[in-house]
Structure formats: structure tokens, C-alpha cells
Design a protein around this nucleic acid. Structure first.
Lengths: 242, 242
DNA sequence: TGTACATCAGTGAACGCGCGTTCACTGATGTAC
DNA sequence: TGTACATCAGTGAACGCGCGTTCACTGATGTAC
């Protein structure tokens, strides 16, 4: 029973050395196992091999720990999304789909982070750091949308990039929540979540009236597909937004 | 303290009469207040004015109660979605947008049901009744997608209705989860969730290559907008799905 | 280089709490005859 | 119409449990001189 704990103590000495990190890692493991709701301060301490009072030296309470995890999640999320975006190379549409896939990959491979970020009930504004990290992550999508908006054929109305970014985010989030999580919420699908999202993004981009042939940002001399007929142009659907 | 309980007993007598209903209602209130994770069997009993052992006469355990609530949620969801759809009147696109709004309205006005259905960790298949109710609700969207697919201009490829239905569901769910819930997950938006979803749906429908002028299902004599150019037709984005 | 001392990061025992669940029970209701 | 009895739907006391949190404490580490 307790010889194990004493052994651990013997190995590491009285001071843990890196308890804060160990607690964050333990919490992450526990959330992955039992969900954000089931994770417990005491459990994290136990998993780190430390007394239940020890975590209070590093976190005010359970919520502060959870907020920290959510923030780290957004930081990693941002770094993965922006690696996928790769500044729009080799062309905007291809890079765009890569971002979508990275979104799903994150939801699937980092369920604990994803839970803490979106499903744990931690308010977005519960710490300045969390808020900033969340906005930086959204910023990647926002920047990509900006570049996508620039694809609008000359003379065509440009949809607001902010709106596009919100659309894209909600598509990815919707598919991730419904279909790409490890837990039991998974439903049977005729195609993979990735394929589903890719098709959705392509249809959406097409609906914006943009060419989707993947040539337009790399070679300016490539043939442009014919623009949409005049009478569909003047007020795009985004024109309805106030 | 306990005179209140005794008074309630005096009013209703030894038998409650409708405890099962009362417990479901109490659970719904509690979930709305504290989220699905915070809801407690004992709390529900207390709110129904009954001893903590009483609920066991009606539900095996907390999970069974939660499953019941999720099922009822899907039943109400289905009835609201199908009322909104109204069999596609007055025209498919208009009815479609109404379904989207009904989706968001449900998420906003019935947060407790929504939580139990999508965020409580209750597996979709935890009871046959729940599963069937969930599928009936999805069926409404599926049927609407079927009708939408029928809008494809003659000669154009028809996207699979199932895929469209999944797209639409995930758009609505994404927006509902991120922006239309009462709790703190709400973010600041440049437009309402309803407007955001409406624009998204319109862009999507347009991307399918369908006319969106709202006349095509009511008056067959109405002028059709010109179809998309030939070279964009043969393989729609959905053609990529395996 | 050594020593005194402040600070840091843990301990472990204890607390009060509310939960889920079980148990023998009992009051109320329905039904067979 | 009355009565005996089975069944149903509650009670309330009790249990063991794990949690969050506090407290005085102590071992280890760092620093001033």
C-alpha cells in the first residue's frame, strides 16, 4: 500500500521538484480518462504521488488548474493550426483544408485539452491568459479567412472575413463535437469526419463564388474559371448580415 | 426547516402521485442551473420534496434518469424541427432556414435538454428509446436535405442527401455550441447566431450549385437562374467522398 | 568556507459535507371474493 | 357492500466513501555575511 508512496518519496526526496508540471500532466491524463467533469483535485495529487494538500501550493483551486489547462490547450491548438496553415502554401484552398484537418486531428488526439477548452464549463474570460490564447488561436483561422476573401474575383463583393472565420470555426467545431471525439458521442457515418469536413469546406468556398481549382494563388497566369453569372453577384448571402 | 417538508407531505399525502414526472422536471431545472455534470440524484429528490431513497422506485440510477431526459429532449427537438420544416412550405430554402433557426432556438431555450442530449456524456446508444428518438430528430433534417437535393438543376450531379444532412446538422450544432448557449462559452459576435447560421446555410446551398431564389418549389414557371458553367459541374466537391 | 536564518514546498491528520445506495419499515391503494 | 390481502410507493436511518480545504508542522534549499 503505502510503501509505494514512500518509495516514490525516496526516489524524489522531500521536494518534488516539478510538481506544477506533474499536476498539469496528471490532470490531463485524468480528464482524458473520465472527462473534465470527473476530474478531481485530490486525484491529480494522488497521481502525482503527493499529499492532497500539496496542490494548493501551486493552484488556488481546481478551477485555476482547469483554466491553466485550457490555456495551454489553446496555445498548442494555435501552434498546430498555424503550422497547418503554413502561411497559405502552396495555395490558399489547399492550406485551408489542411487547417480543417488539423482542427479535427487536435480534437481527436488531444481530447483532454479539447474538453478543457470547450466542454469543461471554464468561462472563456476566466483569466486574461486564457482569453488571449483563445483569441490567438481564432486569429489563425481569421487570418486564413482574410486570405480566402482575397480570392474573390475582381468586381465581386467580398464577404467579411470575420464572418467567414466564424463559419469555418463552427463547421469544424460542429463536426469535431458530433463525430470526431473518442467518447460515446460518436455516431455512425458514411464517411470519415475529415472527408465530411473537406467536402463541407469546398462547398462553402464554392458558395462564396470563389474559384476552388487551387491554382489561383500560386500561378497568376493560370486560367480562371468563368465567374458566376452577373445576376447572382450584387448581393451575396453575406449581404444580409447587418 | 422540516416543517416545510411536513407541510408538503400534508398537502400531497403519503403518495406523491406523480413522482416520476416531478423528478424529471426537477432534474431539468437543476441541469439548467448547474449543468448536466452538477446535477445530483439526491438534489432532484429534495427538489421534489421526497426522501433520497424515493427516486429508486422510478429510476435504476442517476444515469437512467439522465437518459430519460435526453430522450425526451430528442422527442421535443424532433417535434420543433418538424414544425419548423412544415413539409417544406412555402418553399424549400425558406423552410430550410426556419429549421436552422429552430435548432438554435432549441439550444437557447432548452439548455437543460440540450445539455442532456449533447454534453452530458450519455452515450447515444444507452437505451433503444434514446437511440430511436435521436434518429427521428435527425430524420427531420435528413428529409429536408432530401428535398433540397431535389433542387439540383436537371443534368447536374446530385449531392448525397445524407452528406448534406450531416453538414447541416454540424453547422447548426457548431454555432449552437459556440455561440448560442446561455452559459459562459458565449463569445462576442459581430452578428447574432441566427444571422450567422442563415448566411452560412445560404452560402452552402449556393455552393451546391442550387438556385436560392426561393421561387423554384412553389412556382414551376418561375424563371430559373442560369446554371453554373459546364466545367464546374461534372464532379462536385461531394464527388470526392468515397 | 562556514554558519545562521528566511523562505519554500512539501506532510499528514483532521474537519465537515453531500453523495449514492441499501434496508427494513409502513401507509395507501387496488382487487378478489 | 364489506373485508382480507397483495402490491405499490413512499420513509428515514444508516453506511461507507471521497472530496475540498485548513492547519500546524517540518525537511530542504538558498542566501547574507
Amino acid at each position: 500500500m503505502s510503501w509505494r508512496k514512500e518509495q516514490r518519496r525516496a526516489e524524489r526526496g522531500y521536494h518534488h521538484g516539478n510538481l506544477k508540471e506533474a499536476l498539469l500532466q496528471a490532470a490531463l491524463d485524468l480528464i482524458a480518462q473520465k472527462g473534465a467533469a470527473g476530474f478531481t483535485f485530490a486525484d491529480a495529487a494522488r497521481m502525482a504521488g503527493v499529499s492532497p494538500a500539496a496542490p494548493y501550493r501551486h493552484f488556488r483551486d481546481r478551477d485555476e488548474l482547469l483554466t491553466s489547462i485550457a490555456q495551454r490547450g489553446f496555445e498548442q491548438f494555435e501552434s498546430q493550426l498555424s503550422a497547418a496553415w503554413d502561411d497559405g502554401r502552396p495555395d490558399t484552398v489547399t492550406a485551408f483544408e489542411r487547417v480543417g484537418k488539423a482542427y479535427l486531428a487536435f480534437a481527436r488526439e488531444e481530447p483532454a485539452f479539447y474538453s478543457a477548452m470547450f466542454e469543461s464549463g471554464v468561462p472563456t474570460d476566466s483569466s486574461p491568459g486564457l482569453m488571449a490564447a483563445g483569441e490567438r488561436a481564432f486569429g489563425v483561422i481569421r487570418a486564413a479567412a482574410e486570405r480566402l476573401a482575397a480570392l474573390a474575383p475582381p468586381g465581386a463583393p467580398r464577404p467579411p472575413a470575420m464572418m467567414m472565420a466564424l463559419h469555418i470555426w463552427s463547421m469544424a467545431h460542429g463536426i469535431a463535437s458530433l463525430f470526431a471525439r473518442g467518447d460515446a458521442a460518436r455516431r455512425k457515418l458514411p464517411m470519415s469526419p475529415e472527408e465530411l469536413l473537406e467536402a463541407e469546406l469546398l462547398i462553402y468556398v464554392r458558395g462564396l463564388g470563389f474559384p476552388t481549382d487551387r491554382r489561383n494563388t500560386t500561378s497568376s497566369a493560370a486560367a480562371e474559371p468563368p465567374p458566376l453569372p452577373e445576376d447572382e453577384r450584387p448581393a451575396g448571402p453575406w449581404g444580409r448580415a447587418k
